[in-house]
């Protein structure tokens, strides 16, 4: 009985590992897969193979993958809300399905970078000086502003495919981060 459950779990886990978008998640699930298959070897009365699988699959192979995955670039995104009110969960839940989730999916699948979201309600200058993100998403009155470095390849890709990422109901405009720092260009929006 436990053997059948284990085998089915192994197959399901293998499918999830290959179909997942996030690299770190696939890696940890691969570790769990290695552990479960060592248990399966033990149930089939092969303790030597189980020992070898545990020592190599968990000790060597996982740490090698973790060290290799450090080269993946982390892309910091800051979503700046209106200054007057505190950021609550309801606000985040509003913007999440339309802007945040498609942006994260795009970055994970097309650009192969790891997105990290942050939400803030400070002024733009504060965010740029203290946080230094790679991309700032600012919701103006009518448009959505993507603010980032002009030389950043990932930012340019995000700008050029912003029509695919965001719904048709938003208009997206890209502004360089230098302009926002120097000119206070968004004070009037």
């Amino acid at each position: 009985m436990i053997e059948k459950v284990l085998l089915v779990a192994l197959v399901v886990l293998a499918i999830v590992v290959t179909q997942s978008n996030n690299l770190l998640r696939s890696l940890i699930l691969l570790e769990v897969f290695s552990l479960l298959i060592a248990l399966a070897y033990l149930l089939y009365q092969a303790p030597d193979v189980a020992l070898a699988e545990v020592a190599i699959g968990l000790g060597l192979s996982t740490v090698l993958y973790l060290v290799g995955i450090k080269r993946i670039r982390v892309f910091h995104i800051c979503y700046v809300f209106d200054e007057t009110q505190a950021v609550r969960d309801a606000h985040i839940a509003e913007v999440e399905p339309t802007v945040v989730r498609p942006l994260e999916l795009f970055l994970e699948k097309r650009e192969n970078v790891e997105p990290h979201m942050a939400y803030s309600n400070k002024s733009l200058k504060d965010v740029i000086e203290n946080d230094q993100p790679d991309l700032i998403v600012y919701q103006g009155a009518e448009k959505l502003y993507f603010i980032g470095n002009q030389d950043d390849q990932v930012y340019q890709d995000v700008l050029s495919s912003s029509g695919d990422i965001v719904d048709g109901s938003f208009q997206v405009e890209g502004i360089s981060i230098e302009k926002v720092k120097n000119d206070d260009i968004l004070q009037s929006y």
Binding site: P47, D48, L51, A52, A55, I56, L58, G59, L60, V63
Partner: peptide, 18 residues
């Protein structure tokens, strides 16, 4: 007992990795 040269060597390598 179950084990042997290969398994023991792999466990020792795990110590070095840690």
């Amino acid at each position: 007992s179950p084990g042997g040269g290969f398994q023991g060597g792999a466990i020792l390598a795990t110590a070095l990795i840690s």
